[in-house]
């Protein structure tokens, strides 16, 4: 449903990273940190490279994980869109992609976290991507 896939590599030539979403506390609910650890194999790859995902628009996003002394890794994450280096963001397109990435995340976290609840929350809050 979310049409988001992990990419092993990203084409970086001619691209810039545009910061589109920041989370300072990914372990607020520890299952979210666990999900990213499983998905991007931190134990083996560590901080060597970002995690990359491709989104429904075809854009690739880099997930840059942040550590903080005294806290389990990762403590935060930045999501960057990889876009042509001199071009502005298409904000609506990015917003739809982010929604898809969040749905993919909730699907992956699993347990009590249900995509149906996220969709219902998005509709209640009138999030455009949730109604698309």
């Amino acid at each position: 449903m979310s049409r988001v896939e992990v990419s092993k590599q990203a084409e970086l030539f001619g691209k810039r990273r545009a910061l589109v979403l920041v989370e300072d506390r990914i372990g607020h609910y520890p299952e979210f940190r666990d999900f990213f650890g499983r998905t991007f194999d931190f134990g083996r790859r560590g901080l060597a490279e970002p995690g990359y995902v491709s989104a429904p628009s075809g854009l690739t996003y880099a997930l840059v994980f942040i550590g903080r002394s005294g806290e389990p890794f990762p403590d935060g994450v930045e999501i960057h869109a990889l876009i042509p280096e001199l071009e502005p963001l298409d904000d609506e397109l990015v917003d739809r992609d982010l929604w898809a990435i969040l749905c993919w995340m909730i699907e992956g976290v699993g347990g009590d976290w249900k995509v149906a609840d996220l969709l219902a929350t998005g509709r209640l809050l009138r999030i455009p991507a949730a109604s698309a």
Partner: peptide
Amino acid sequence: MFPWRMMHAPLLGPYLLGRH
């Protein structure tokens, strides 16, 4: 979970309450 914890969960808080 709906809607309270979803609203402020990791990345969802910055997206739902931040961007929107």
